[in-house]
Design a protein around this nucleic acid. Structure first.
Lengths: 392, 392
DNA sequence: TGGGGACTGGACAACGTTGTCAGAAGTGGC
DNA sequence: GCCACTTCTGACAACGTTGTCCAGTCCCCA
């Protein structure tokens, strides 16, 4: 019974598709004047009446307006062949006059592909992750895909929520900077076809593509650099111990010390959250010496955030008298203009993002080879702070 | 009738939902080895064969597996009341054993709301926009919405493409840092119910909500600060003249100069892209004096990117002899650690993002009042570079 | 004038979910 | 034993699009 009136309804040029379905009656009753003419006259009146997109024209409306079939509109909208130029013109007119825009949700449902990828990072605002996000976005754009992204705030549960929400949206692929160390929750998704690339840190308890910087070698070479400049008591301040890169960098630190035959006093090593309070406390402890341990003459910093705090600590007036050498993992803007300029182990965040995204799209294009782990090299950039000799 | 064979099919753990629909035949022919058994045995073999999510279990599959009706599954998935705990348990079992995840595309189509908002900025990697994005994301998250974002690269056409693509995805709302100056293209979308807030710059030729920093007053006070420290020849280097904030800040500069009765030589004013080459050239021109114009003794910088380049220019050895005062619009990390520390007109990007997002969600919650323009104050932070006295 | 091919247009089902509505099963009172 | 009621369940349509398939229409050539 629904069909007959429905069909005649769409033949009507100004077809109120609304009125057939009971679902939209609230919207219809709230904005009854929303006829073609009235709509233009009162821009803000009915704007937020019902559901956000209630009352949007559909292809059916366009078809009725142009006096053609539904599929013909679809063809025009998608630039498919097989529509005479005259018909096309009529359809285009109807489209612009109704303000029609294709509903991609419906398209996605039908086609099974969303042309969007998800990105989960720790913090979108972190100067390490923002160029990385941008690079992923550029690659996505080049492939005609949109980017949906979120910050995990280094919380495994939030990472999981985000990743699964993205999967529920049926993103075509996922780039994840993992916060947690167990990603079995993604197994069904990967099996179902969500291409997944882990970035900066490896996946936990699951096999998948990954793109990592060589944290171990980077840290090793940075600490070796300090040793080469005469330091024998070197501190390490890094990110939380659960984080893979923190562990790897610590391992690099220990390796460099071991290679040089230098002992490591445990008070010289501090892992933890990168908030400035914690870093300041740990720095103070190792710089001033404590519990019978001699103070360090150099510090290796595990990342970006830590380095910036350390730069502040070392710049404090009371520390000026006894210069301490510093090498930091991650480059950062203006590092070269500080005094002393900061020696760093540089990664290229944009390159990491680009590599991960390209790997992802290779998968989406059908690459079937087993998961691979890409390692990107780091580069020591000597600027001054890492070349300060020890005082004693 | 369709149910009986279907049910038996889905009872099979590795149900080949593919093979029932003709829609997937092209995919099947593309990856002919993608047989059912192979999938389980070789996890990565058939993974990217067809459409990304082909063969995912649906509610129908879950229902068949649990021996219940479709709607009951829907009820369980959405935590609706009216399901006995025994039935719920059976459904939950079926869900986990099949690895079912609700398809939000279908949900969106049905419900008309996507629980996602779009954000268009100039450059996600810019240290001004990344905390802003993060703030928008936080607010979105608090409202249970995801964030889809993109960079316009300051290209109006690209901004338009992005914004319309987001509308086609039926985002519930849109936060835009506009690149262009004509947003009439958004009128049909706004009419259709896409809540839209413009951020950092006003919309062009359209009425809509906006959240702006007080660029005029900020620049005026910054230049007045330089004047108060004795400068009479002050340069202004800003962003491209098409950009609203650039114009406003220039206007503030001129106002401060006029208030002090100081003339402005046109070579002291330079607008253009923020790439370092252009800024360096303009800086050199006004610092060295040219064509009978005396060199400036202070520079006011129109933004973040320009300031950083100017800091580098002023730090060059050959410029050290003649210190030049500098005040920059936008604060930036480590500004206080440079020598001299940089005096800035600070905006709070996170606050801007938060305000815009909150305004957006107010609209989505039904607020119907006319579009409003929020102005956020700026704050002068004197650190040293802006207090350098003029040489002559 | 008729027949074949090329082109154009439209009816219909399907994608996976949720809202509506009605039916079935269970409970208690009389 | 029956009715009224509540609680639970499922059939069905609809959301707006695209793929399939068939039916016209037009033109050209024989």
């Amino acid at each position: 019974m629904a069909d007959a009136p429905d069909a005649s309804g769409t033949a009507d040029p100004a077809s109120p598709a609304d009125e057939t379905g009971p679902a939209v009656s609230p919207a219809a009753s709230k904005a009854p004047g929303a006829r073609t003419g009235a709509r233009a006259a009162v821009p803000h009146a009915a704007r937020h009446g019902g559901r956000p997109h209630a009352g949007r024209p559909t292809m059916k409306d366009v078809a009725a307006r142009a006096g053609v079939g539904l599929k013909t509109v679809s063809r025009v909208v998608n630039g498919e062949a097989g529509v005479s130029s005259d018909t096309e013109r009529r359809v285009q007119e109807a489209i612009t006059s109704l303000g029609f825009r294709r509903n991609d949700s419906a398209r996605v449902l039908r086609k099974g592909t969303t042309a969007s990828i998800g990105l989960v990072v720790e913090d979108l605002a972190d100067p390490f992750y923002s160029p990385l996000s941008r690079a992923v976005e550029e690659v996505a754009r080049a492939h005609g895909a949109l980017l949906i992204n979120g910050s995990s705030a280094e919380d495994p549960e939030r990472e999981r929520e985000l990743a699964l929400a993205l999967c529920a949206r049926r993103v075509d692929g996922l780039v994840i900077v993992p916060a947690g160390d167990d990603h079995r929750y993604l197994a069904p998704e990967i099996t179902a076809g969500v291409a997944t690339v882990f970035l900066d840190r490896p996946p936990g308890r699951i096999e998948a593509d990954m793109v990592l910087s060589d944290s171990f070698e980077g840290a090793r070479s940075g600490v070796a650099h300090l040793i080469a400049h005469g330091h024998r008591r070197i501190g390490f301040i890094g990110d939380r111990p659960g984080i893979h890169t923190a562990k790897e960098r610590l391992r690099g630190y220990r390796a460099a010390m071991a290679e040089a035959g230098l002992p490591v006093s445990e008070p010289w090593v501090a892992l933890g959250p990168t908030g400035s309070d914690r870093v300041r406390a740990d720095a103070a402890r190792m710089l001033d010496g404590s519990a019978g341990t001699a103070p360090v003459t150099a510090v290796f910093s595990g990342n970006n955030r830590v380095t910036v705090t350390l730069v502040r600590v070392l710049a404090e007036p009371e520390r000026r008298g006894r210069p301490v050498a510093l090498v930091g993992f991650d480059d950062f803007e203006l590092a070269d203009l500080l005094s002393p300029p900061v020696t760093v182990i540089a990664q290229d965040p944009a390159d990491l993002g680009r590599s991960a995204a390209e790997l992802l799209f290779r998968r989406l294009d059908g690459a079937d080879d087993p998961p691979r782990a890409l390692s990107r090299p780091t580069k020591l950039i000597a600027r001054g702070s890492g070349e300060i000799p020890p005082l004693d």
